[in-house]
């Protein structure tokens, strides 16, 4: 089960980033409160970038741990599958987050 969690974990981080960015964007663009719209959007946008960066760092950290390879990690196929999943999820996270670099408000 730990192997299963380690594999799934990679993608769970991805899913978390996606959900968080979507939620933050939704809040930034929610109707109402037109007065300080600009400030609100900037604030949520910085949060989105922050979460994106944090998740990418987390995946890098995990990969570093796997690469260093403490003894309690499984070896063989399981290890390859776990490491491969984290690499792939890292790439997926980078790609999924790209739209945030084009801050185009709420249109």
């Amino acid at each position: 089960m730990r192997t299963v969690l380690a594999i799934a974990g990679a993608w769970l981080v991805w899913a978390f980033v996606l959900a968080a960015m979507y939620a933050l964007h939704g809040m930034a663009c929610a109707p109402g409160g037109e007065a300080d719209e600009g400030r609100r959007i900037t604030m949520f946008w910085s949060l989105m970038v922050g979460i994106w960066a944090a998740a990418v760092l987390a995946a890098l950290l995990m990969l570093w741990i796997l690469w260093r390879g403490p003894s309690q990690w499984p070896g063989g196929v399981s290890r390859k599958v776990v490491a491969g999943s984290w690499v792939a999820a890292l790439a997926a996270m980078l790609l999924t987050g790209v739209p945030v670099l084009f801050p185009q408000a709420c249109g």
Binding site: M21, H25, P99
Partner: peptide, 8 residues
């Protein structure tokens, strides 16, 4: 909004 669509 378009940015959210882009994520998905």
């Amino acid at each position: 909004p378009h940015m959210a669509l882009a994520f998905f």
